[in-house]
Amino acid sequence: MGMLAVAAKRFVRSLAVISDEELIAEVLDGRTAAFAELASRYRDKVDRLCQRFFADREMVRDLAQESFIRAFAALSTFRAEMPFGGWLRAIVVNVCYDELRRKQRRPEELVADFSGPERMWAQLVNEATPEAIVQAAEERREANVLAHRLLETLRPEDRTVMILKETEDLSVSEIAKIMGWSEAKVKIRAFRARQAMRRQAERIFAARRSQAVR
């Protein structure tokens, strides 16, 4: 009878959508398998956030995994006042930021080695109408490659701020909390990121023009 009750309870439980907080409580109680469910809920979002930082799929997978490992190790420090998604995002951002600092590329590497399709894309962005650019971007893999190469030229701090501001739509204070910086520093980094981006874009457009003249 007791076993039946337990089985029935499990069945009813499996039908319900368990909240993140309940899953975390289960993990902290020793039922570590519950973390797999928690990870599956956020896997896609974590992958997507990592993809904003890095183009290499292998690296994205590694960083996502590293983020979940860090989250698991630090789960006891999670406080239910904040949403788990926000807490996990801070971990992912810090993992990616650490990796950016390790692998920083030099800006001069950018323009030197464009492939043909990337040049074509840069030309299109420089010359076509806004509507044509949006339309063309959907099918062009090189658009993604070039975007990543452009972002790679930014300093890790600038790039992180840019990604959090543009893709995650976070406020200055939210970014400051995640990164452990002052709000003034976030504003400065955002300003510098925009400036650097403009500079790099102009270099690309100028390189494209000079190649066309030759």
Partner: peptide, 30 residues
């Protein structure tokens, strides 16, 4: 806009990759 467009495929992605991580992780979002 042209400068924006150079990085928009990564920063503003396609429709499937646009959704940011939830600020409010509620049961409904799952």
């Amino acid at each position: 806009f042209r400068v924006f467009a150079l990085t928009a495929t990564v920063l503003h992605g396609d429709s499937a990759s646009r959704e940011p991580m939830p600020a409010q992780a509620s049961v409904a979002t799952h």
